[in-house]
Design a protein around this nucleic acid. Structure first.
Lengths: 365, 365
DNA sequence: CGGTGTCATGACATCGGTGTCATGATTCCA
DNA sequence: TGGAATCATGACACCGATGTCATGACACCG
């Protein structure tokens, strides 16, 4: 690999002059510049970042750690998509700034984090971002001093800068929109209790009802998702049964995520219930492969992963550059409601209660 | 940040001795070693990879480029999942070898590739992997000499090392398995014509039939997917109509991917057709979020993304280490058939033809 | 007991850039 | 026309590791 000395020799100048041509930090004569540029392209010279870094102590590298640190990870499920979208958001900001991303993943074991951090420090990464696969609290080893750390899609209790989805607002906006479309009885099949997203979204749901003057009915709420994959279908089946057999059943079912909505489609159709004619369905995440492909396409609140990544990246950059760029911590990022045809524009007139054909049959699988 | 000189001073030895303790490349006295190790942990010293690299010319870095170079990309759809799984496969091999992954993506524009490659060369990446989001031909600028390049999920006509999914075999194995389960009339709703995967899988389909002595019936084949997202539902609707209204309709529908199968579920159910009682459905990809969540869970051929990534990484490492480790080019990786309950174990007895309730109605959406 | 090997360690150069300072050639203005 | 300012360029040290070679202290052996 050619060095700056080789270029200097070919161009008949000193290495320092070549350096000046490369960096443009001091004037260089026109003819000299041309000779140097010719030599560079002739030799295919590319400066070594490592050598450059030794003097400047700026590596141009950002370390990125992804992976499920949570204790709930069952280890073999490549959830990954949220991570990826966040990473894309980060990547787009970084490449615009000329930073290069180094990426490492824990493979699900939080024990590997210190090792990964060490590698990044060896490469003198200027900052580190930790990305979680769902909104959660994490405990990370303290970052090495001098290397700023930002958390994306997670937070800790040490006050580390953190970027989170605004789950409360997302659910609020979705439910408000449903109310605006004429729905008053809104079923809600939640994610597992104990998750931050579940709690926050329920608050958003309640706030939207309150704003519209609709009384909150706990009967309409049911957990529709278990961490235990095996029992998922049965749980959702029962939850749907329960809310549909209410004396005054909902006209729309909000699902905790798009995956659950997809499963709900199957369950509802199996019983001969049509969407959205008999009942409307909404999801959460805007997991596009699901939401756009389902038939009918799914109305869903968007989890703004890419925007969260970009926010986290911006914040990290400002920390690196020592800007006092104040941010509230945590920073909440909200996304739009994606309105699609799984929800009727005008809910059935008051008083007309649909009777659903219910069976006691469980998941026949 | 502490340097090796700081450590040497604190421990009262020469920098070279510290280096020896770090690398273990020469014997060091017991007491000296202890003093050095104490100084290291006291100062929180981590060696600088950049400085190390200047002498060794080994950076420990691998460059990874992902993104849709294809001309068909509609630009705003984050397909990404295949990329991610391949990246995970690569990552697991690399971290086991102590290499660090630098990642960059083209954001859909192939014009950015040279720029990304240049960045990697600046960092003196020891090798580069290019990852595509689906099996396709690509044209990349020639890699800088001395930096090996491996293509994952794509190939070129320059003979660059390339790792591809064995689409022919995957479809063959799936269809053979369906035949073994008693199916003889096997409908096939393909991906768009012109894709490599479409051609190869059709060959696999035919080979499986031929091996079982079943005559190939072109009526059973129909394109079920368009690049044009808007028309997708209508296209699939028509394709399903066509094969189901045959005098001797299929007992199972193979879909070009799991996404199409998900859409088929919706279409079939909307018409009151039950799965798998009335007809079986199979997919391709083993896109787990879909295949495991659908009701009933989907039988599908696995596209072994992680294994492909691992293979590509292994190959790249052997190229870097100049091993003559012969590989056939391209290297084909095959995955298992995931058998789930969307396909009946025993197809209906011969002669009993199911009549489907057909409508001429299009997608009512 | 002197010569030879082994062991533990240090001095110094080197990798490939860039910061600092010096130098010679021009240009400029009083 | 002479001194100062500007310009273009080069010499040299330095960043933080490691490879090479040298050195002093012992152990070993005939």
């Amino acid at each position: 690999m050619a060095t700056i000395y080789d270029v200097a020799k070919v161009a008949g100048v000193s290495p320092k002059t070549v350096s000046r041509v490369l960096n443009g930090d001091a004037p260089v004569g026109e003819k000299t510049r041309e000779a140097v540029e010719k030599a560079i392209s002739q030799l295919g010279y590319v400066p070594s970042n490592a050598a450059r870094m030794m003097r400047s102590s700026r590596s141009g590298l950002i370390g990125l750690i992804t992976g499920a640190i949570s204790t709930t990870s069952d280890g073999n499920e490549p959830k990954g998509l949220p991570d990826l979208l966040i990473v894309q958001g980060i990547q787009s900001v970084m490449s615009a700034t000329g930073m290069t991303l180094m990426i490492a993943d824990t493979g699900g074991s939080s024990a590997r984090v210190p090792e990964l951090v060490r590698t990044f420090v060896e490469h003198r990464a200027e900052g580190i971002i930790y990305v979680a696969d769902y909104h959660q609290r994490v405990e990370l080893p303290p970052a090495p001093k001098g290397t700023p750390l930002v958390l994306a899609n997670c937070y800790d209790d040490r006050g580390t800068p953190s970027v989170l989805p605004d789950d409360e607002r997302g659910q609020h906006d979705l439910v408000s929109r449903l109310i605006a479309a004429g729905h008053k009885r809104i079923g809600y099949l939640t994610l597992p209790k104990g998750m931050d997203a579940t709690r926050l979204r329920l608050e958003g749901y309640k706030r939207a009802l309150a704003e519209a003057g609709i009384e909150f009915d706990p009967e309409l709420i049911s957990t529709g998702f278990m961490h235990d994959k095996q029992r998922n279908s049965a749980v959702l089946w029962d939850a749907i049964d329960r809310v549909l057999s209410l004396p005054n059943p909902p006209t729309v079912l909000c699902c905790g995520n798009d995956e659950m909505a997809m499963r709900a489609y199957g369950i509802l159709r199996t019983r001969g219930i049509r969407m959205p004619e008999d009942i409307s369905v909404a999801g959460y995440d805007n997991y596009r492969v699901i939401a756009e492909t389902l038939f009918p396409p799914l109305t869903t609140a968007e989890l703004p992963y890419a925007a969260m990544g970009a926010r986290a990246a911006d914040w990290l950059l400002s920390l690196i550059n020592d800007e006092t760029h104040q941010q509230t911590n945590p920073t909440l990022v909200s996304g739009p409601v994606n309105w699609r045809s799984s929800v009727t524009a005008n809910a059935s007139a008051d008083g007309k209660t649909i009777r659903f054909p219910l069976s006691n049959g469980r998941n026949p699988q």
